[in-house]
Structure formats: structure tokens, C-alpha cells
Design a protein around this nucleic acid. Structure first.
Lengths: 200, 200
DNA sequence: GTCTATATAATGATAGAC
DNA sequence: GTCTATCATTATATAGAC
């Protein structure tokens, strides 16, 4: 199983004998591999192969698979994605992104996929919970004024996670048979219901 | 790691030397173990131990771990849960069940937990997708008249799955800090939005 | 009908050479 | 800085005894 870090994307091969760039290459390979296969679904050998090195260097530079995963998660959730938008445009933006074709590289999607495919491992879940709380939930609650902000944030994230789970991970028939445009419309209504500070 | 099939629930120990009841005991242990730890998170040894037998009998009676999982999934999703209700009461019922204490045995919850914790494994995902489509989505779509029934079913299942993921699997801080009553209220509003045949 | 013992393969991690 | 070789553990699955 090759990971295909995408040597097409940039810097070709001359990376050997450089600690910093080797570390980066491993981290990049790990991000792709963990996102695609989940924490339990990929081994350090394959991650190393995707970076063009041997498995030994993974432990050399990151200590263990678990520590590599922690740094991968941190790296993915550190870059702001959904939070860059204001509450007014957020619902449409997220709905369109989720329901749209998964062809182009949408980093928002990737962050959630990494979570969905790894959360069944308890140690990975601990790491994910901590990172998501630090980078997501607090800022998101501040972005949603009005009553029940905590509850609305929880449901907002639940809906994103659940949609991606059914659509990209389980690939459920209900999603497959659904019309993308209608899906985006219905999804947008739900998001607005959560983001608008209407009392309930 | 013991699975604790609950020898308290019924038939105590005198089950030895009986093919049918041994099969049942293994299946019951598998249901608990797969739901709690996911497909990759538990081994046949531990499942067998939870049934009071050795690992060999698992393969003897079910062929392989994968076939045991398939039969477990089928067994869990075969019993009707959400579908017993009519559309009118469904939104309140599901919202209250999800947001309520997870202390009592709610089988609805268990079915989704089994899915959430195993879907990261591709072979398990195939099994789950097939079973869910056969037992859930078709009947659910028939229960939801009005426009965009496929899309609304997809979002209905997404919301349930996502909520359980954030609440019971990831145990996210947004969920932990949320007020259960307010959560149930907001959740109910979202479900009604999907179940009511209002055009969009 | 169920067991002990084992085959085979894969995993994460490490030792030591260059 | 990176490699080859290996250790220790664990996994599923099977062979053969009783």
C-alpha cells in the first residue's frame, strides 16, 4: 500500500541527508496516510515509505507512532479553516463545501476525515479531543453569539462530522442517491438554524 | 481486557457442549465487544473469552472474524428501533433518546456506536453500508413523505451519527459543557426541520 | 464439542553498522 | 543521517488430540 505523498506537488527528490526536510516529508506523508486510512489502518512502515525513508526514521524523529499522530493532528487543526468566516456566510460556505465534489483539495474535509477514521482508537481519541477543543470549539463559540452557544456549537460540529461520515467514510446509499444541490440546500437550512441566534 | 457479556442477564454457566447456545454466547459477546471497541479494537481471543470459550470456536462457528462481524451487524440492525415510530413523534423521541443519559440500555444508540467505531475499517464499512441500507434507509424514506425524501433521510441519519460521534465516541468538550435539556431542545428543532415535509 | 499447541504474518520499536 | 537486521509482541487462523 503506497501512500503517494505527491512528489508532484513540489520539491522533488534531493531531500536526503537533511534532518529538517526529512522530518517534514514524514509529517506530510503521515497527514495523508492517517487521513486516508485512520490511526489503526496504517503502519509506520507505509508512512515511512510514503516519505521515501525507512520506518526507523519515524521513531527517530517523532519518538513513536502515537507521538507522530499527535503532531499530525496538531498540524492539521492548527491552520484555521471554518473559523476564518463570519457567522453570516458560514452556513452557506460550509454547506456548499460539504455537498460539493470532493475532487478539489478542501482542507476542512481532511481535518474531519482524520478525526472520523481515527477516533475509534482510544489513544487517538484522546489526542483528537484535546486538539479539537483547543483549536475549534472555543473560537467557534465566540463566533456564535446568542443563547445556547455551547449547545449550538456542539450540534454544528456534530452535523459536519455526521455528514462527512455518511458521505465520505460510510458512503451510504442515502447519500449516494441524494441530489447534491438539494442536499446543499437542506444542509444550509440546518446550519442557519444553528448559527442564527434565535431563541428556542 | 474482559468483555463482560453479562452473565448476570440470564442463563448462567451450564451451556457447555451445546452448539446452539455456544454460538449464541459468542454472538452476544461479539455484539458487546464490537460496539464498545470497534472492529479493529478487539480480537477474537477476547470475544471468545467473553463467551467463556476459546478463540478456536469463533472461527469454527462463524468462519472468520469478518463473518462474525457481518452476522453481528445483521443481528443489531435487524431489530427495528427508530422505525417503529411515526414521523410525528419521531423527532421528539430521537432527540430525547440521544440527549438523555446513556445509562439505560438504548439499543438505538448501540447500533450507531457499532457503526461509528468500526467504519474506519474498509471491510467493516462494506458490511455496515450494506446492512444499513437494507434495514434503515429504505423504510425511513417511506416514513418521510414530501419533497427531497432521500436527502432528508441522509441528513437525518447524519445528524444522529454525528451527534453520537461527538457525544459518545469523541466525548468532545462542546458536548460535555452543553446542557442536556437545551441540547435536546435544539436537536428536536433540527429533526423536525427534516421530518416535516416543508418544501425548500 | 471443545481443547492445547502451533503456523504464519504483521505490527511497533530498537541495536548497531556505515 | 540513514540504513539493514532483528527483537518482542500480537493478530487471525488452523491441525490434531481427547
Amino acid at each position: 500500500m503506497d501512500v503517494d505523498t505527491g512528489n508532484v506537488t513540489g520539491e522533488a527528490a534531493p531531500r536526503r541527508r537533511n534532518a529538517a526536510s526529512t522530518r517534514e516529508a514524514i509529517l506530510r506523508s503521515a497527514k495523508i496516510a492517517f487521513t486516508r486510512y485512520g490511526y489503526d489502518g496504517i503502519g509506520v512502515r507505509e508512512i515511512a515509505q510514503g516519505a521515501g525513508v525507512t520506518a526507523m526514521l519515524v521513531n527517530r524523529y517523532f519518538g513513536s507512532k502515537e507521538l507522530l499522530f499527535a503532531e499530525t493532528v496538531e498540524s492539521v487543526f492548527a491552520e484555521p479553516t471554518l473559523l476564518t468566516n463570519d457567522a453570516a456566510t458560514l452556513s452557506r460556505f460550509v454547506a456548499a463545501t460539504l455537498a460539493g465534489d470532493e475532487s478539489d483539495e478542501n482542507d476542512h474535509v481532511d481535518g474531519f476525515l482524520l478525526m472520523l477514521r481515527s477516533v475509534s482508537n482510544p489513544r487517538a481519541a484522546d489526542i483528537l479531543r484535546d486538539s479539537i477543543e483547543r483549536h475549534f470549539e472555543q473560537q467557534l463559540a465566540a463566533l456564535l453569539p446568542g443563547p445556547d452557544s455551547h449547545e449550538r456549537v456542539a450540534l454544528f460540529l456534530s452535523l459536519i462530522a455526521g455528514f462527512q461520515l455518511m458521505h465520505n467514510v460510510l458512503d451510504s446509499a442515502a447519500m449516494t442517491r441524494a441530489d447534491p444541490a438539494a442536499l446543499a440546500r437542506r444542509l444550509g437550512v440546518l446550519f442557519q438554524q444553528l448559527l442564527d441566534p434565535a431563541p428556542a
